[in-house]
Simulated assay, not measured.
Amino acid sequence: MFKRIFTRCAVFAAGCAASLAVMAAQPNVVILATGGTIAGAGAEATNSATYQAAKVPVDKLIAGVPELAKVAAVRGEQVFQIASESFTNEHLLALGKRVSALVKQADVDGIVITHGTDTLEETAYFLNLVIKSDKPIVLVGSMRPGTAMSADGMLNLYNAVAAAAAKDARGKGVLVAMNDELNSGRDVSKMINIQTGAFKSPWGPLGMIVEGRNYWFRLPAKRHTVNSEFDIDKIDSLPLVGIAYGHGNVADTAYKALAASGAKAIIHAGTGNGSVAKNVVAGLRELRSQGVQIIRSSHVNAGGFVLRNAEQPDDQYDWVVAHDLNPQKARILATVALTKTGDSKELQRIFWEY
């Protein structure tokens, strides 16, 4: 009898030791929660587009996906609890500095940031520019609140943690994990507001994540993270950069108002190839003579590609083109770049390289 009990105890102890060994071997992933739809709740299960964002705290998000424990040792921090359309430059700086502090810790292998989808692409690109680490940083959101039928948040969060825990995600820049895809934080944008496949890159995803495993197909070509000349630890404030939308019958009213409010640069969200209406050109040239940087981008959703000296003589006017960056991403790069230089030629180099 005693022998049988001893045997059972030994088996139990061995099992515990094995479990502890697995836990000790697991990568450590920190989830930084900022709010958004992934933390939202609707009144009924049929409410997939009508709900309140930023309601569920990070501990409940983690508890709602117990499978996370199979891929990483996870802990959470509630950084903000807001809808992402309310993100400001101050929020970006605070989040960036917290991420920078965490990636320096030996006991942190990866970071996941839960985020509202409205400005998720902006935060992802900002972190891609200013965080000096090759550790995986993965942003994740959802298009439906967790209370809705076919809610996408649970799987998105599981995939994000699995991606952040994987060694093969290192060195690929800041990632966005949505709808089974792994996209570059530089390229990806929200293309529609009511479907789970909302986030797309005009140049395609970097990879896919299936049942917790990453499958990679391409690498980011532009400078990012460890190869970036920008460092969040050296940035304490961000200059104001505004966006003015180009359209038929457009006037220069918005551009002048942005400059009067203190904007150091204005992103022209132009039609087609960043086209500028002829009745706006004189106003933009005047603003440039006053020291305001003029940056031509395109609001073409599927990938506006602005060519220098096409449509407008950028060299003559001393304007900058945003390359393939959409207006909101161009704003992020401009506000980061202006912390280091106010020279238009240097700004153009930065837009080519990032």
Rank of each mutant, 00 (worst) to 15 (best):
K172A: 09
M1V: 09
D233E: 15
N128F: 05
A251V: 10
S48H: 14
G141S: 11
I137E: 01
N214F: 00
C9Y: 13
R218A: 13
A160W: 01
G283A: 14
V281G: 02
I235F: 02
N273D: 13
E211D: 15
G185Q: 10
G204Y: 06
S86E: 06
V176E: 08
A277P: 00
L206R: 08
A164N: 03
G96V: 08
V22E: 06
V292L: 06
P27D: 11
I267R: 10
R331Q: 13
V210E: 09
V188Q: 10
G64L: 03
G248Y: 02
N309C: 07
A101S: 14
A166S: 15
D180S: 12
Y317P: 01
Y158F: 15
T271N: 08
L157R: 07
E211H: 14
H224R: 15
Q328W: 00
R213I: 12
Q316P: 00
N326H: 11
I113C: 03
N128H: 07
I350T: 13
A63T: 05
T271Y: 02
A177C: 11
A166L: 09
H224V: 12
H115I: 01
S298Q: 05
L333N: 06
K345I: 03
R349M: 06
G36K: 04
G40I: 10
P57T: 08
I243D: 08
I332S: 09
R218M: 14
I192A: 14
T114P: 01
V65M: 09
W319I: 00
G291S: 06
K104R: 12
E181C: 02
K278M: 09
D109L: 02
T271R: 09
S150A: 13
F126T: 14
E229H: 08
S142I: 03
A106G: 03
R288T: 04
G304A: 07
P239G: 11
A263K: 07
H268L: 12
A151W: 11
R8S: 06
N273A: 04
L120K: 09
H299M: 06
P313E: 12
Y215S: 11
L92G: 10
Q316L: 13
I137T: 04
N193M: 08
K97V: 01
I194W: 06
P313A: 14
S19I: 06
P27L: 09
A45D: 09
A69S: 15
R213F: 03
L240W: 01
G110P: 01
L219Q: 15
V138H: 00
I137N: 00
A160E: 03
T50A: 14
H323K: 11
R331Y: 03
P57S: 07
N279L: 09
E229Y: 03
